[in-house]
Design a protein around this nucleic acid. Structure first.
Lengths: 278, 278
DNA sequence: CGTACCATTGAACCGTTTCAACCGGGGTGG
DNA sequence: CCACCCCGGTTGAAACGGTTCAATGGTACG
């Protein structure tokens, strides 16, 4: 709806630029800034390194900072009062996290492995955003993307079986993993099984078991504990989309609650929709 | 983070204004517009009435229109390929729906009961937004709220039990229902049980059963099929927050996957977080 | 006054969890 | 240097929560 601002950072960054050598300089929001703007922005924050397990912020604490991930993978999670944890999502290099309109962080952010970030005081970040509409548009576009992703995950958690969730996740992870052209798709899984389980709303034993099933069905191959390759991508896509041909009970997966009460809608809607785009 | 623009529509709308008598004139995005701006905006779209079950748009079809709900409740849903349905959310008066950065509608939007909407061609809507920063800010704020809601729902679907999901939903619905001060909280449920079930990721039989449990536990009272009152709000809040005292097996709900690897973080983070806000 | 549809209730079944044992690699200390 | 331990991952067996299938009740509507 709102076009993301075109990249403005064509000029090469020189050695004295604070973002010199930054792996995400062109990615994400930073890419929307001119060289000098970027430098000014960068100087409002500081760089930090995180070890595996370090927490950036805790759910419920004041949201005083926002973070830009340069390297590694972060885990965003929420807790129920009795200790049940759910992983809302993972953040990858280039992602901004901790950006919220609330006063408190809505979730805990931790490193699943060694990571590097830039960290900006919220007030200065907000002020900078307000002064740079192109940056603001990108931020909006990122929020819109996050929203679409979150709603897709709602579908995953609300209606997919364990093996379908896992297939969906593995396919997602291939998009986050560097691919070798011509070779079967790889998925690196930098987080422990428990994190994947808490992300997919199942227990880690289930992740192990269903990985085993995918393996025995020849859909994937385990390279290492934290790396798989997709052997039969088409079958994986079908499985993830909820269009599997079940092995055991052929009648189990037929239509459940389809019920679309009335197709697109009578005359009125068709006329209205077709009539005017712009 | 980005403040929502202050309401600009103080001047009363006169009888010749296209929004005269509109129940959501001050709500939502419209409230960000001056009287004349609002009139201009309103004239880019048309009003429509929907009967229960009418579809506004279908998942996967081109997103040609955006809609502003004036009256009634809409249901946003997605389908898996084999027909399993999930309700992503409900829309209430004042909500804008169908706003997306994608080319296609990410979900189907239908009326759960008779409803009234205004409908705007996407192109004109986008153009109007681009020309009215205050409006755009509100849109961003709405997206941020939707994102927070979606992530809360992820927690619900990922980790809560059926009865906890239902308690969460009923409490949410009290916020969307007009309350009588001094009386126990009411929740109107304008949608059928099947919609609630598909929203909470369970079957409608489960909704019936768990409503029965809440009733027998004296937490709620059923007024009619589509209205309940909350008798013990504190207990409901505890239940919804995952802090229930289970009746059957006292040991079942103890901490599960708590494991916060390292508290807030070592020196570095404390210093950094405390040091600078703005 | 039937009929259609939603809601409720019952009983058997199944997918996932729970609990427990075991495996294997990497780091540590004797 | 190697035994030991620790911890994440895997595998097995039993239990449970929610589903599935089926029958019944209730109510709006033609």
């Amino acid at each position: 709806m709102i076009p993301s601002g075109s990249s403005a950072g064509d000029a090469a960054i020189r050695g004295d630029h604070p973002c010199f050598g930054c792996p995400v300089r062109d990615r994400a929001l930073c890419g929307a800034l001119r060289c000098d703007e970027l430098a000014a922005f960068r100087r409002t924050g500081i760089a930090r390194r995180l070890a595996e397990g370090d927490a950036l912020c805790m759910e419920g604490t004041p949201a005083a900072q926002v973070y830009n991930l340069k390297k590694g993978v972060l885990r965003l999670s929420k807790l129920l009062r009795d200790g049940r944890r759910h992983v809302i999502g993972f953040a990858f290099p280039g992602d901004f996290v901790g950006v919220t309109t609330e006063e408190e962080h809505p979730f805990t952010i931790e490193a699943t492995c060694d990571a590097e970030i830039c960290q900006f005081p919220r007030g200065r970040f907000t002020a900078f955003v307000a002064g740079h509409p192109r940056f603001e548009r990108r931020l909006f576009a990122a929020a819109a993307r996050d929203l679409a992703v979150a709603r897709e995950q709602i579908l995953v958690l609300g209606r997919k079986t364990a093996i379908e969730r896992l297939a969906t996740f593995l396919l997602d992870m291939t998009r986050r993993t560097r691919q070798v052209p011509g070779e079967p798709a790889r998925a690196e899984l930098p987080m422990p099984r428990g994190d994947i389980a808490d992300y997919l709303g199942v227990r880690n034993e289930t992740i192990s078991r269903e990985l085993g099933v995918l393996k025995s069905r020849r859909l994937i191959r385990m390279i290492r504990t934290h790396e798989v390759t997709i052997i039969d991508r088409a079958a994986m896509e079908r499985l993830a989309a909820g269009d599997d041909t079940p092995t055991i009970r052929p009648d189990r997966f037929r239509a459940r609650t389809a019920l679309i009460r009335r197709p697109p809608s009578p005359l009125q809607a068709i006329k209205a929709d077709a009539a005017s785009e712009n």
